[in-house]
């Protein structure tokens, strides 16, 4: 029950997964299965929230110096949940407006700012790559610099534009294509191993 049934379930639903990919006539089954997966996954959120709560409760219990911030997380979480749920049942109410404002002026700018930090991270990564002295790193860097210039080139530098187009069209496409084929083989092999029960680490592994 503890080990064999999960392996059997993985096999059984794995076969269903293969079948719905192959048989158009079973589209109804496929839609049902996709709904099932969404429904099943939804309940895991309860486990997730309990884990997050536990993580912050431990900090609070241990009187960690950042205790205040754990409270911030809790308050924000409850606040957002409550105004969201009330807003769901009363779409015209004030709380729904507040929920939308929280989304637009808290979540969106935080998201956008984190994303914008990439400008700095990518620069520092490029800088470090600059210092590497192997021939491979040099090739990487050279291609990177040419393409960077190529994307904004004008006037006498327009030649970089053509070189960039060539680099993207020939060597980059070739490399990415082969890498993708390898990934495809990896995905298929891993999936087969799981369906056949050869790979069972996801169940905690062991026998």
């Amino acid at each position: 029950m503890k080990r064999t049934l999960p392996l059997f379930l993985a096999f059984f639903f794995g076969i269903i997964g293969i079948i719905v990919q192959m048989v158009p006539a079973l589209k109804g089954l496929m839609d049902t299965m996709l709904d099932w997966m969404a429904i099943i996954a939804a309940f895991a959120l309860a486990v997730g929230i309990s884990s997050l709560t536990r993580h912050h409760m431990t900090k609070i219990r241990r009187k960690h110096k950042d205790i205040f911030f754990s409270y911030v997380t809790f308050i924000a979480m409850f606040f957002m949940t409550i105004i969201g749920l009330v807003g769901y049942f009363r779409p015209e109410g004030a709380l729904q407006g507040l929920f939308e404002n929280m989304y637009n002026y808290v979540r969106v700018p935080l998201d956008a700012s984190m994303f914008a930090l990439l400008a700095f991270y990518i620069t520092s990564a490029a800088y470090r790559a600059f210092r590497a002295r192997t021939w491979l790193a040099t090739v990487l860097l050279l291609a990177g610099v040419i393409v960077m210039i190529g994307r904004v080139a004008f006037g006498p530098f327009i030649i970089f534009n053509d070189i960039t187009a060539w680099i993207m069209k020939v060597p980059t496409t070739a490399a990415m294509r082969a890498v993708n084929v390898g990934i495809g083989l990896g995905i298929v092999a891993t999936s087969i191993k799981i369906v056949l029960g050869i790979e069972r680490s996801y169940l905690g592994g062991g026998e």
Binding site: K2, L5, P6, L7, L9, A10, F11, F12, F13, G14, I15, I16, G17, I18, I19, V20, Q21, M22, M33, W36, M37, I40, A41, F43, A44, V47, N180, V181, I183, G184, L185, I187, V188, T190, S191, I192, I194, V195, Y202, L203, G204
Partner: peptide
């Protein structure tokens, strides 16, 4: 709780086999 896990993992694995062979390879 291993049951929902194995159902989800099994289904998505089976689902990926033919599709990945086609698009990725």
């Amino acid at each position: 709780s291993r049951y929902p896990i194995s159902i989800t993992v099994g289904f998505w694995s089976g689902y990926a086999i033919v599709a990945s062979f086609k698009t990725n390879i």
